[in-house]
């Protein structure tokens, strides 16, 4: 074994004495009454195919595309923010009724980000990359449905209590971690929600883009201003998702991250090899 391999295994927490997320010592050796089987050394490592190629591509394509959509959206909002004192209805704010805590966004925010004011270029980007965002998202949904991958992603009746356990565990408030699966309840809820949010962005975006031709849609959403409000807060929710997602990926470690690039994850060897369709025994985050 080369030193890198050893490093790999450490990073994959294969030899970590403390059970890290997902590695349960007893999982490595299946229970067996036969004494010989217990005594004889078995392989320690296995590769598990975790993320299909198509999903990896769509995940990584979405990252820059959504970033550009958020960036160009900021340029568009800026045109509104520059009239902070003029906007009587104040769609983009934190506040209730006639009371506003903060208007989104203040001037310093744009300055901090070193953005260059440009409503025209903002709309140019937005109405170009919206196609990439929509088509990539549509293919993702169709693929997960056709491949059966949705079974791992869609929450079930246990997901919510499990999500609570995972959250308490990850915040260090509880030692108990629910059984490991490919995606835990928290992930199922998060990953399904973010797809629904994507759909929400497309629907509210269309209502803003064609408020007359799609006026029924706009009315169903509560009107033009409400559609704008939703479009804005969905974007804020993406940013929230992104921050938690990245934090969890960092927590879960290199082995988990690498699986999103190469597809395979290093897992403890199991006597009966897990089929490609079998659920993973290693939990991950992110």
């Amino acid at each position: 074994m080369s030193p890198e391999d050893m490093e790999d295994m450490k990073e994959g927490s294969m030899k970590d004495p403390k059970p890290k997320p997902g590695i349960v010592a007893s999982d490595a050796v299946p229970p067996d009454d036969s004494a010989a089987a217990v005594l004889l050394p078995t392989p320690k490592l296995a590769l598990e195919h975790k993320h299909p190629l198509a999903i990896r591509w769509m995940h990584w394509v979405n990252f820059p595309v959504l970033s550009i959509m958020i960036y160009s959206g900021l340029l568009i909002y800026w045109a509104d923010s520059q009239h902070n004192d003029l906007n009587s209805h104040q769609v983009y704010r934190i506040g209730v009724g006639g009371w506003t805590l903060v208007r989104l966004f203040p001037d310093w925010f744009y300055k901090k980000l070193h953005l260059e004011f440009g409503l025209a270029s903002g709309m140019g980007y937005h109405f170009f990359f919206m196609w990439f965002f929509a088509i990539n998202g549509l293919i993702y949904v169709l693929y997960t449905l056709a491949s059966g991958e949705w079974r791992y992603l869609v929450p079930n009746r246990h997901s919510f209590s499990e999500a609570l356990q995972v959250t308490l565990h990850d915040l260090g408030l509880s030692k108990h971690h629910p059984p490991k699966r490919k995606f835990n309840g928290g992930q199922q809820i998060a990953y399904t929600s973010v797809i629904l949010m994507g759909l929400g962005s497309l629907v509210t975006g269309l209502a803003i883009y064609k408020p007359t031709q799609a006026h029924i849609l706009a009315s169903l959403l509560g009107g033009y201003e409400m559609a704008r409000w939703m479009h804005f807060w969905l974007t804020m929710a993406y940013v929230g998702f992104f921050l938690v997602h990245v934090a969890q990926v960092i927590r879960a470690g290199w082995n988990n991250f690498r699986a999103m690039v190469i597809g395979d994850e290093l897992v403890p060897y199991a006597a009966e090899p897990l089929g490609a369709e079998a659920q993973g025994k290693v939990a991950d985050h992110g």
């Binding site: 074994m1 890198e4 391999d5 790999d8 295994m9 050394p41 078995t42 392989p43 320690k44 490592l45 296995a46 590769l47 690498r258 690039v261 190469i262 597809g263 395979d264 290093l266 060897y269």
Partner: peptide, 20 residues
Amino acid sequence: AEEHDREILARLRTKSRRGF
């Protein structure tokens, strides 16, 4: 077992190189 693990790691290295 060690041979098996070496093979796994070799495959992992190949896949990682290609993937990244």
